[in-house]
Write a protein that binds this DNA or RNA. Sequence first.
DNA 1: CCTAAATTTAGAATTATTCTAGACTGCTTG
DNA 2: CAAGCAGTCTAGAATAATTCTAAATTTAGG
Lengths: 141, 141
Amino acid sequence: MAKQTKHTQPDLTALERLRAVGLRPTRQRLALARLLFAQGHRHVSAEDLFKEAMAHRIDVSLATIYNALHDFTAKGLLRALSIDSMGSYFDTNTSEHHHFFFEHSGRLEDIRKDKVRISSVPPAPKGAEISRVDVVIRVKG
Amino acid sequence: MAKQTKHTQPDLTALERLRAVGLRPTRQRLALARLLFAQGHRHVSAEDLFKEAMAHRIDVSLATIYNALHDFTAKGLLRALSIDSMGSYFDTNTSEHHHFFFEHSGRLEDIRKDKVRISSVPPAPKGAEISRVDVVIRVKG
DNA sequence: CCTAAATTTAGAATTATTCTAGACTGCTTG
DNA sequence: CAAGCAGTCTAGAATAATTCTAAATTTAGG
């Protein structure tokens, strides 16, 4: 129970996480980071996080939620997802992985990278470089 | 030049397409279908199509553009895409295929199905059924 | 033609997100 | 530790994409 990959560091405190990426550990960023990374991996929208913060009596504005989500994403603490229209989601799992998307509920579920084998992809168009391959398995039912 | 798959029927008129899926061929649906399916496969936003219609002196409201895009999608004439946040796109290619997504420009490019080989996917969660597997290859540069 | 049901439309309303400008705060320095 | 500045936070206005509403129009059928 000591092994950690580059992308899974459950033991880091919110403060350590912010310091590690060079984000100033302000009161609100610390509080939000604690909410986001306390539990296992999650997919949250700005509104979700805002409500959660309110429930925890954390006084933070919606604008700050957006700022923090974007800052965290820019620094690699989160990964932005946009699978269905209307609304972005942020994934606390920044490691390489894929998703199930439940069409009726809009819910997302992680799929471990090794569960999907992509044995061939086309070469990147000239001048371009592949930055990521995202697989979304849409399910109904 | 006679072969056609279920999903590629370049010779159909707009009228035939609408009739085939049971949509009433109104003046505006016909005009929009002509714009959408005249040329090769495309990725258009509501705003794109609206501007294109205006350029062609087609008098249609933006609300109707949205209605038509959604109706066409529901009937399988289009496929909805949402890869980056802000803005949905509609793909005139409804056959099984994937996409390149150019991160800096936001442009999409189709990838033929056979160019991507997915040799294993996880089983659908119990009670669910896989409806589609979407692969997006994000490229930068 | 006449009617009923479907469609279109202008404009208001919603929703998600970003922007603005001023107030506040964390960090560095003296 | 006080001072100051850059970075951050916030309320509220502003934008942008999309949906809704209710009325006017059009299509399909007899």
